[in-house]
C-alpha cells in the first residue's frame, strides 16, 4: 500500500480526533514501526489494516465503516492533490469512467508497482453505471467510499448498491451507481 493512503488516514484522524489520537493509534497498532509514511513508498497492507482495526476498537465503530469513511475523505484529499483529474471530468459519470484508463494510467507513470484495482464498466439501460471491481486486496468498501466522496464533490445524489462481492466468494465486486439526476 502506498504511503499516500496512510498520509490521508493520518490527516483524517488528526482532523477528526487530534494529533494525540493518531500518536496513540500508531503506538497501539504499529508499536515496532516509526510511523513515518512517505507518499510514494510502499508499506505492508497489514499496517493499514492494523491501524483501521485499532481505530475501529478505539472508536467502537465497525472497521468497514472506517474504511468507507476513509474512502470518502480520501477523495477530497486526492482531489486537492491532483485537481487536474477533476477538472477534466465535467460530471460524476465521466469522472468514474476515467478512473481505470486515465487516472490509474497516470498513477502507474508516477509509481512503480502501485497494485491498483481494476475496473470494468457497463452502462446499464437504466442509465446506471456498473463498475466491476477486482483487486487482491478486496478493498471494495474503500472504493465505495471513494465513489461517495466523488458524488459529494460533484454534488450528484447517487444510490450505490453492491450486490456481488468478493467477500462472499465472487471473483469480483459489482458496484452499481444509480445517479439521482440525469447524467
Amino acid at each position: 500500500m502506498k504511503g499516500i493512503v496512510f498520509n490521508i488516514l493520518e490527516e483524517m484522524v488528526i482532523e477528526k480526533c487530534g494529533m494525540a489520537a493518531w500518536n496513540e493509534l500508531l503506538e497501539t497498532a504499529l508499536p515496532d514501526e516509526d510511523g513515518a509514511f512517505t507518499a510514494g513508498k510502499s508499506y505492508p497492507d497489514e499496517n493499514l489494516f492494523a491501524l483501521v482495526h485499532a481505530a475501529s476498537a478505539k472508536l467502537e465503530t465497525p472497521a468497514e465503516q472506517i474504511i468507507s469513511g476513509l474512502g470518502e475523505y480520501m477523495f477530497g484529499e486526492l482531489a486537492k492533490r491532483y485537481p487536474i483529474f477533476i477538472e477534466q471530468a465535467p460530471d460524476l459519470k465521466t469522472f468514474l469512467l476515467s478512473v481505470d484508463q486515465v487516472i490509474h494510467t497516470e498513477v502507474r507513470k508516477l509509481y512503480d508497482d502501485p497494485n491498483l484495482p481494476s475496473f470494468e464498466y457497463t452502462q446499464l439501460d437504466s442509465g446506471a453505471l456498473l463498475m466491476e471491481y477486482r483487486s487482491p486486496r478486496k478493498l471494495c468498501i474503500l472504493a465505495e467510499g471513494l465513489i461517495r466522496g466523488a458524488a459529494h464533490h460533484y454534488q450528484t445524489p447517487i444510490t450505490l448498491s453492491h450486490p456481488t462481492c468478493m467477500h462472499t466468494g465472487s471473483d469480483h465486486c459489482d458496484l452499481i451507481v444509480e445517479f439521482g439526476d440525469e447524467q
Binding site: G3, M19, N23, D34, A36, T38, A39, G40
Partner: peptide, 19 residues
C-alpha cells in the same frame, strides 16, 4: 503530541527526498 508528529514528518520528508 506535535513533537512526535514533527519528528515523523521529518523522517517522512527525508525519505521523500531520498526517493
Amino acid at each position: 503530541p506535535y513533537i512526535k508528529a514533527y519528528e515523523r514528518e521529518k523522517r517522512a520528508r527525508l525519505e521523500a527526498e531520498r526517493q
